[in-house]
Design a protein around this nucleic acid. Sequence first.
DNA 1: TCTTAGCACTCTCGATGGGAGAGTGCTAAC
DNA 2: GTTAGCACTCTCCCATCGAGAGTGCTAAGA
Lengths: 353, 353
Amino acid sequence: MAENDLERASLPELADRQRDILRAVIREFILTAQPVASGALVRRYALPVSSATVRNELAELEDLGLLTHPHTSAGRVPTDLGYRFFIETLMPDTALQPDEQLTVSHQFQQAQRDTAQWLRLAASTLARLSSEASIVTQPAGTTSQLKHVEAVPIHERRVLIVAVLEGGTVRQQLLDLDQPVTADELRALGQRLTDTRRGADAATLAAAVGQEQGVARHIVGALSRMLAEAETARASDVYYDGIQNILAQPEFGAGDPARLRDMVALLEDRTRLADLLPPDIGEGEVHVAIGAENRVQPLLDCSLVFGRYGGTGGVIGYVGIVGPRRMDYARSIGAVSFVGRLMGDLVRVVEGN
Amino acid sequence: MAENDLERASLPELADRQRDILRAVIREFILTAQPVASGALVRRYALPVSSATVRNELAELEDLGLLTHPHTSAGRVPTDLGYRFFIETLMPDTALQPDEQLTVSHQFQQAQRDTAQWLRLAASTLARLSSEASIVTQPAGTTSQLKHVEAVPIHERRVLIVAVLEGGTVRQQLLDLDQPVTADELRALGQRLTDTRRGADAATLAAAVGQEQGVARHIVGALSRMLAEAETARASDVYYDGIQNILAQPEFGAGDPARLRDMVALLEDRTRLADLLPPDIGEGEVHVAIGAENRVQPLLDCSLVFGRYGGTGGVIGYVGIVGPRRMDYARSIGAVSFVGRLMGDLVRVVEGN
DNA sequence: TCTTAGCACTCTCGATGGGAGAGTGCTAAC
DNA sequence: GTTAGCACTCTCCCATCGAGAGTGCTAAGA
């Protein structure tokens, strides 16, 4: 990400003591949500210097743009750049504890082996691990290919079309026919379409509608629409969880309630949510957008930690965490990274690798 | 509901003018969320009496337990009993406007004909219509019966089992086998199981595991588990929407944030949510639980408007609205009733009737 | 040159205390 | 049965004030 390199390039050089103090300020602010005072730093971190010295260093860190002041006689608060510096150069190891990893893996193995369940579990796991809100999108391919078709009779003229896509997604749709069809005919039709249309994508199927007659024509048309819908599924199949965690944050609870509402509205509007996650991010990487780095209005005071997971066939999905800028980045990054890897593994299992 | 008859039996008789005044107080409080003063009533409702007379009537309504006072010199606020009285005897027609009905029906017809989509749409529609939060549960039968089985090869030893249940629900699960199976074998197996096990429920399938050998044995075992899970799906497949609407309510926004958090936590915990909806409610009826009538802690200041929808085969689901006690009951009841009926129709369509 | 004690200055926060305003309850007259 | 009048109560807003916390600066010390 070019933007990121730019950020990194403009990060200032700091002396060891300044790094220690900045780390302590950020740690303290993440913990308490209160501006951090020089005296408190000396007391709680047993610094070998006086509070006056710390004040001098704090003033310098402020000149460098890493910290600010809410007002003259208040303690220091990290800026976006401060957080960025912390993440790039000061952050401790982000990996989750081995026992946590084990517990989470275990839960995923115990869950019903069904994509929707996994997505829900991923969202709730991320929310629990990070104590923030989470977003998870359905894995969707740039193009979806048909793997298997089944037509199940529901009623004389009504069939349930079940399409299994390459990658293991299952899509279903009811279809009303203009003529009655028997169960055996449907079974044979499903088999024939599976054999002849296997590997076709939405466009190919749309083009093939003309080659079919009668009932088969209807079904191929429906399949084409279902695949097309699967390709754009990213917009609608977004799972979120952990709104309660955000409500517990002091910056949202006390402050003006309108900001909170905007934020929840964003989470509940799946279309806007999907637009937030940019496609230019590598598999397995974790990206962090801090405060104003988010372009969307309600997220200007928030941070977004997200990663991409995917299988081999261009199938990708996103997992992410949304929270206040004052977020435990190490933990969030660890959680996103781990759950993303887990989801990637699951997608590959479903794909058959 | 016995409790409800009891409530209704103990509702007092009121003179016409008292009924008018009570109606006006409730209407005004729903609108403004502020205690209602005698003078304001006379002004805004052009009552043909003076504010002193209204004060006398208000005092009597308070004696009857229909209204209260936050403090001596404040206006009146409805009690739970007051709302109950309003709903039972004063409420205007609850039906949605014809054009609204048309719009909503149209949206449901336009949606992909797939249960999960419908549930999501029902939740968002209820939230939008009522400006409150909504809950919708997946329709689940007391017992689910198998209608169709398909085994789709994913990998040499890995198959995707797709089970279509009586009622149109589709369930899927990945299965790892201990021996490789060809696509043709799987297809034949699916066909045989569909023919022999059609109409079986979870218990029957569990009992039948012993009759099968090898791969078929694995699959029947998986089917039994899938059906059993479908029967208890009520607990996990709950959709909610409209948390942003609740955040906009003054009683939650300003008051202590802990209450709000408890409430959202309740919505996000699908297990607890499912327990809230009692089974003893008739198809098509709409029930209202006001304030303390809810037994669950975080809902003591809230009201719940819910209804049951269902198909013919004992398949039932719930639709509901959660909001502050000061809720537009007429509108909420209208919305729940209409969306419930719509969902019932859809379930019956999926069942083939 | 770096560190630190000391101190003035600034800003927030909570408590205090009217005063205005809204609304009720009561009484007495119509 | 209705209503004007009025005393009384309670909230809410605002201004004030002092305590407390914390900074920035200066000058002395290492």
